[in-house]
Amino acid sequence: MAVLVTGGAGYIGSHAVAALLEKGEEVVIADSLYQGHEQAVLGGKLYIGDLRDEQFLAQVFGENDIDGVIHFAANSLVGESMEDPGKYYHNNVYGTLCLLEQMKKAGVKRIVFSSTAAAYGEPERVPIDEYDRTVPTNAYGETKLAMEKMIRWFDTAHGIKSISLRYFNAAGAHESGKIGEDHHPETHLVPLVLEVALGQREHITVFGDDYPTEDGTCIRDYVHVSDLADAHLLALDRLRQGGESAVYNLGNGLGYSVKQVIETARHVTGHAIPAVTRDRRAGDPAVLVASSARARDELGWSPSRSRLEDIISSSWNWHRTHPEGFKS
């Protein structure tokens, strides 16, 4: 029996594939390579194609005895989603519908969905709990929430059990140094800071230093990508054991400020990393941290790489050996 990983050539998906292979699982990967990289796939059987292509999906399911699905495939840039929401609804929502329809036809009854804490929108409280209101403030978060709801209705109608995992900032790289973060364009803070250390940009921009936080900069929830991969595997195991459909947050429970990330990167890399402060960006909350108590209690998830220095060190190991990403 095989596990199908959609978007398995992407950043988090490739780490999930690596974790599955380390467990001895049979792995099938479906990825269009629009944002993913073939070099990031460390093993398994890779199919290159689009989830919205019915013939492609039929081939993937027809040629493999699939036991469960871990679904990462999606567009994920917040700014782009606000400029072109139609692209996000068509790829994210319609693509998921096509996947669910094919699962129904093939009799596959388990799916772990890589969702997002952006589904909550502006938090009413911190840390954010799974029962807090979901009012996304961007089209990306709205499509992910729509995907969650659609998946739940497929459970009601067709018995496809699901676990949706909501998290904010994935960071870090695989301990082997073989796979890491390679996005174009890059929008995440940790790799942007490390690009300064590599001499690929002159400085890192800090958007606002007058927030009601200890050092005045925004606080965000950073989780090591391998810890996130582990959580997806634990969720699949829970479904295999007969677990009911559920939603879980994943977070480090602490949160780190922009200045903390920059200072830690300076320490890890030995580079000065100049920083320039600009005005706040519209819509940036002061603190975004998710409570992962439920995932720890019910999934047995215990992140082992939650120290900021460990996260940045693993990322630095990747970026300095792959300064041009997978092109290196």
Rank of each mutant, 00 (worst) to 15 (best):
C98V: 00
V225S: 06
T321N: 15
K109I: 13
A58M: 08
A171Y: 02
A30T: 02
H158S: 08
L21V: 04
A197R: 01
A146F: 13
F168C: 07
A58N: 13
L4R: 05
K259A: 00
N252D: 10
Y89C: 04
V28D: 14
F72L: 08
E148A: 13
V206Q: 09
G13I: 11
S257D: 01
L228H: 11
D53P: 00
F154A: 12
G216Q: 10
K178T: 09
T134P: 00
P323N: 07
K161E: 11
D84A: 13
P212Q: 07
G8Q: 11
H271Q: 15
A235E: 08
G216D: 03
N64I: 01
E25Y: 12
F72R: 02
V112T: 11
E202A: 15
E122T: 14
P323S: 05
M1K: 11
G79Q: 08
A282R: 15
E83I: 02
A282Y: 07
Y167T: 12
D65S: 13
S313M: 03
E309V: 08
P123F: 01
E130F: 11
E101H: 13
D67H: 02
E124P: 11
R166H: 12
R152T: 04
N249Q: 11
G49Q: 06
A58E: 13
Y94F: 12
S32P: 05
D215Q: 03
N64D: 02
T96C: 06
M103L: 02
G36Q: 10
T96E: 09
N249H: 15
L99Q: 06
T137I: 15
S306G: 03
P285R: 04
L192E: 13
R110S: 05
T116H: 12
G10H: 11
H37Q: 09
N317E: 02
R152F: 08
V3K: 00
E202M: 06
G180D: 12
G251Y: 00
D310C: 10
H267N: 08
S245M: 09
G68E: 14
G243M: 02
H183R: 14
G36R: 10
Q260H: 03
I160W: 01
N64A: 08
L228D: 13
M147D: 15
R220P: 07
V206A: 07
T205G: 11
